[in-house]
Computed example of a mutant assay.
Amino acid sequence: MEFVLDVLLDAVKDTLVLIPFLFVTYVVISLLELFAGDKAASAIQRAGHAGPAIGAVLGVIPQCGFSAVGAMLYADRFVTLGTLVAVILSTSDEMLPLLVAEHVDPAVLGRILLSKAAIGLVAGFAVDGVLHLLGRGELAEPESFEAEDSEGDDFDPSQYTCDCGCGEPLTRGQAVVWVLINSAYRTAQVVAFIFVVTLVLGGLIEWVGEDAISAFLSSNAVLAVFCSAFVGMVPNCAASVIVTQLYLDGALGLAPMMAGTLVAGGAGYLVLFRTNENARQNAAILGLLYAIGVVSGLVILGLGL
């Protein structure tokens, strides 16, 4: 009983200290979504065959659902497969808020984000290059993005329609309320995941022993890369939470963490299967992304980073 109580209290303590940092981070992310999210998606759509470069760069911007937008645009062939690959690989999902909340060295955080963007860019153009050689990958005629600002660079928040399900333009006051509610909801959702993951990991560490777990993962670094990438494929933000938390706890090294978070497309995978009717093609895309994540992890491991 004492064992269970100790693990429970440790999980509660470790989770509570993250709440203010997560909430502030999600407020910033929500503001980015409100003022720049649809413009970023519109820029990717208009990029055409240069999409992988735009997608890799804009994918670094912390915003939830970017992979879902990429999947929808790809299903209608407004972007290339390489662009979709670049967006998913560069998007951090829940990784960035967790790293920020745990006060990870900004230099380390910057290298992780830049590495994800670089891998996304290279992989995206490589995919499009291969498809071009095979005579595939035609794009549909570009259309104006629904939420694009028709007045140019001047942006009026009162004319913005957010992804709140109401379908109506927001006033400034409604926008503030949406940001706060959205941030609180996503903070609560991630905190719940973190608590469960921390509770399970804490119990496992106490039961098996931290030294034994560290020794196993250290001696099976290649296996850790494969397993981490597999977890990252789970179509839920819990995937990136689990992988990132293991990295922060020291149970995973940089290589398996990168492998897992590179392929952590979250809801984007669900949207892909719902909007793109070719199930075999969707399965091939998932296999491709998994392979890229594993190879990237193995390369990082081989370089000793």
Rank of each mutant, 00 (worst) to 15 (best):
Y160S: 13
S158D: 15
E102A: 14
L170P: 00
T83G: 02
E168V: 15
A118K: 08
L89F: 11
F155P: 00
F125S: 11
H103K: 14
V122E: 02
E151W: 12
D153V: 14
D163I: 08
L96F: 14
A140M: 01
E138F: 05
S92Y: 04
G135A: 07
L99F: 03
L113D: 00
S92C: 04
L121K: 09
A101N: 07
L98N: 10
H132Y: 09
V130C: 01
A175N: 12
L99I: 07
F155G: 00
S115M: 14
S144M: 11
P157G: 09
I112R: 07
A107M: 11
L114P: 05
G137S: 04
L84W: 01
V127R: 01
A175D: 08
I112K: 07
S144I: 13
P157C: 06
I88M: 04
A140Y: 01
K116P: 05
S150T: 13
F125M: 09
R111F: 03
E146S: 11
G137W: 02
T171H: 03
L134K: 15
V127S: 01
L131F: 08
D93C: 12
E143I: 15
D128N: 11
P106Q: 03
I88N: 09
Q159W: 01
D149G: 06
D93K: 00
A175V: 10
T83D: 02
Q174C: 10
P169S: 10
P142R: 09
A123P: 10
Q174N: 10
G135L: 03
L134W: 09
R172Y: 14
G173H: 10
A117R: 06
I88E: 00
E138D: 13
I119S: 04
G167W: 08
G120K: 05
L139A: 02
P142H: 09
D163L: 14
A86R: 04
G137H: 03
T171P: 07
A107L: 14
G129N: 07
R172P: 03
V104T: 13
D154L: 15
D163P: 00
G173K: 13
G165W: 00
G82W: 00
L131V: 06
V122N: 07
D163K: 11
A101S: 12
D163N: 13
H103L: 11
E102Y: 10
M95E: 12
G135P: 01
M95G: 05
V100Y: 03
E148A: 12
S115P: 00
P157Q: 08
L139P: 08
A117L: 02
D93S: 11
